[in-house]
Design a protein around this nucleic acid. Structure first.
Length: 463
RNA sequence: GGCGGCGUGGCCGAGUGGUUUAGGCAAGGGCCUGCAAAGCCCUGUACCCGGGUUCGAUUCCCGGCGCCGCCUCCA
C-alpha cells in the first residue's frame, strides 16, 4: 500500500485505507498571468506520476486542480498591456494546458476556475462572518487566525517565531498578525463582484478550500502543492475549513522546487525557462524521466545539460523497446514478476522513483544481455516489465512515442530511403567505400544508420 | 531571528555504520561489427572541514564553514 510523507505529521504514512478503490486528490493549480516554467512542469509531472501509479494499482482517482484566473498579478499585467484581465487569464491558461498536454500529463477530472466559484466563496465568507470568526474592515474581510486552535500546524514552528511583517507591511486593519484576507474590495475598473461587503473579489486562500470541499467533500485523501504553499496558503486553507467545522484533507504532500544554478526557479525571480520552450526543444518524455530520477522532496537542478543527459538515457530505453518490439506493439509476454514487484514496492515507499527507475535500468541491462545471448524468453519478460512499469508512470517507450514520431521529420523521406537502399546494395556487393559514403551522406541529413541482423535500421541522429 | 533542508566521484542523482553495490550521462579499455551504430563486459580507490563515539563512519553525536528554501505573491 502506498505510503507518503505527510507534512502535517512529518512522517511517512499510509495514504489510503485497506481496500480503497478510490482516491480524492486536490492539487493547487496555477495563477495564469505568465508562461508556465520548468518548476510548474515538475509539479505537473510529480502529481501525474502519483496519479497514474495509483491508477495502475486499480484505484480510481478523483483529481481536482484549480485555475486562479482573478488575481492582482493578472490585473497588473492587463493594465500594463492595455488589455483585459480576462484576456490575460485566457491566454496563459491556454498555454498552461498546452504545455501540460505536451508533457503527457492527464487533465484533472475537474479544473474549476476561480471566477466560476465566486458565489460559493462569497457564501463561505458570509458563513465565517456570521460565526464571528471573521471581521469586516474597510480594507477587506479577514479571518481571525486566533479562532483556530491549531493554527500553524503546517508551518512547523511556534507562531510567535514567525516574522510577520518582516518583509512586507502588515495591513493596518488586521487585528492579529496572522489574520488573512477572505474578501478584498475592488477598485473601480478592476474585476469585482457584488457582496454584502461591497464590490470585491475573493482572497486567494479561500479559493482552494471552496473548490475542494465542494468537489471532493468535507473530507478527502490528499491535498498537494509546492513547498512554498505550506505556509501560509495551505495553513490558511486549513484554518477556514476548521472554522467551518469541516474535517478537510487527511494528508498533505509538498514537492520541492526546480533550481537553476542552485536557486529556486520562480516567475517572480525571472530566472525561469519556459515549459513551452522545453517541450519544443526536446522530447517531453526526457523531462519526465529526469523528474522520475530524482525524489520529489529534493530540489532538482534542470539545465540544458541535465535534460540532454536524460534524453540520452531515454534513447537507451527506446532502443530496448524497439529491439523487443519494433512495431511498437507491446509484446504479449509475462512481465518479470520480480522486477514488477520491486518497482511497485519502491514506488509505494513515498514514491521512491529514483530507486524504482534504478531497478528498471538494471533490468534493461539484463534484458539486453539476454537478447545478445539469444534468450528471447528472458529478454522479453525483463523488457516487458520495464515497458509496463514505465508506462504505469506515464512514460511510453519506443521511438514511435518519441517526438520525431509525431513530427514531419519522423519518417525518412524518399531521398533518405533511396540512399539507404543503395547502401544496402553496396554492402551486399561488399563495396564498403560506397556504403560508407552513403552512410556519411545520410548522417549529413541527420540520420543514423544501424545494421542489425535483420537489416539496416535508420533513426534520427542526436545533434 | 525562527523553522526546514542540503553539501557524494567530470556532471546529474540515490543510499548506507563494515562485506559487492545505487542508477543515468560523460570518459577510458575490451568483445561484437567489413567499419560503425546499438548492445554486452571491465575500469574511477566519491562522500565540505575539525573533533567525538566505535574494532570500524561518507553514514551516528558535537562544533564549524558554505549553500538553499519558508516565515510575502509563488509549483
Amino acid at each position: 500500500m502506498l505510503a507518503l510523507h505527510d507534512t502535517a505529521t512529518s512522517t511517512v504514512r499510509r495514504l489510503l485505507p485497506d481496500g480503497a478503490r478510490e482516491m480524492s486528490l486536490y492539487v493547487c493549480g496555477p495563477t495564469v498571468y505568465e508562461m508556465p516554467h520548468l518548476g510548474h512542469g515538475r509539479a505537473l509531472l510529480v502529481y501525474d506520476v502519483l496519479r497514474r501509479f495509483v491508477e495502475s494499482q486499480g484505484v480510481a482517482v478523483r483529481h481536482v486542480s484549480n485555475v486562479t484566473d482573478v488575481d492582482d498579478k493578472i490585473i497588473e499585467r492587463a493594465v500594463r498591456e492595455g488589455t483585459t484581465p480576462r484576456e490575460v487569464a485566457e491566454r496563459y491558461e491556454a498555454a498552461w494546458w498546452d504545455a501540460s498536454d505536451r508533457l503527457g500529463v492527464l487533465r484533472p477530472t475537474s479544473a474549476p476556475r476561480a471566477t466560476e466559484y465566486v458565489a460559493v466563496m462569497a457564501s463561505m465568507v458570509a458563513e465565517m462572518v456570521a460565526k464571528g470568526v471573521a471581521y469586516v474592515t474597510p480594507g477587506g474581510v479577514y479571518l481571525d487566525a486566533g479562532a483556530v486552535s491549531d493554527y500553524g500546524l503546517l508551518a512547523g514552528q511556534p507562531l510567535e517565531s514567525l516574522r510577520s511583517g518582516a518583509r512586507v507591511d502588515v495591513a493596518p486593519e488586521k487585528r492579529g498578525p496572522h489574520d488573512f484576507v477572505l474578501w478584498k474590495p475592488s477598485k473601480p475598473g478592476e474585476p469585482g463582484w457584488d457582496s454584502p461587503w461591497g464590490p470585491g473579489r475573493p482572497g486567494w486562500h479561500t479559493e482552494c478550500v471552496a473548490m475542494s470541499l465542494d468537489l471532493l467533500g468535507d473530507s478527502f485523501d490528499l491535498h498537494a502543492g509546492g513547498m512554498d504553499l505550506k505556509f501560509p496558503h495551505h495553513e490558511n486553507e486549513r484554518a477556514q475549513a476548521a472554522v467551518l467545522g469541516r474535517s478537510f484533507s487527511r494528508h498533505w504532500m509538498h514537492h520541492a522546487f526546480v533550481t537553476a544554478a542552485g536557486e529556486k526557479m520562480a516567475r517572480s525571480a525571472g530566472n525561469f525557462t519556459t515549459l513551452t520552450e522545453l517541450v519544443e526543444r526536446t522530447d517531453p518524455r526526457a523531462y519526465r524521466l529526469l523528474v522520475l530520477r530524482s525524489h520529489y522532496r529534493q530540489p532538482l537542478e534542470v539545465t540544458r545539460s541535465t535534460v540532454a543527459a536524460a534524453e540520452e538515457a531515454l534513447e537507451r530505453l527506446d532502443s530496448l523497446a524497439d529491439r523487443l518490439s519494433p512495431d511498437g506493439q507491446l509484446l504479449e509476454v509475462t512481465a518479470d514478476p520480480d522486477v514488477v514487484a520491486r518497482f511497485r514496492s519502491q514506488m509505494e515507499n513515498d514514491l521512491d522513483t529514483p530507486a524504482a527507475t534504478a531497478t528498471l535500468f538494471g533490468a534493461v541491462t539484463r534484458a539486453n544481455a539476454a537478447a545478445d545471448s539469444g534468450d528471447e524468453r528472458l529478454s522479453s519478460s525483463l523488457g516487458g516489465a520495464v515497458l509496463q512499469s514505465f508506462s504505469h508512470v506515464g512514460l511510453p517507450l519506443g521511438r514511435l512515442f518519441g517526438r520525431q514520431a509525431s513530427g514531419p521529420e519522423s519518417a525518412p523521406g524518399e531521398e533518405a530511403t533511396e540512399l539507404l537502399r543503395r547502401r544496402e546494395k553496396a554492402r551486399s556487393d561488399r563495396d564498403f567505400a560506397t556504403a560508407d559514403a552513403l552512410r556519411a551522406q545520410l548522417a549529413e541529413m541527420g540520420w543514423t544508420v544501424e545494421d542489425t541482423p535483420s537489416g539496416a535500421r535508420i533513426r534520427r541522429s542526436r545533434r
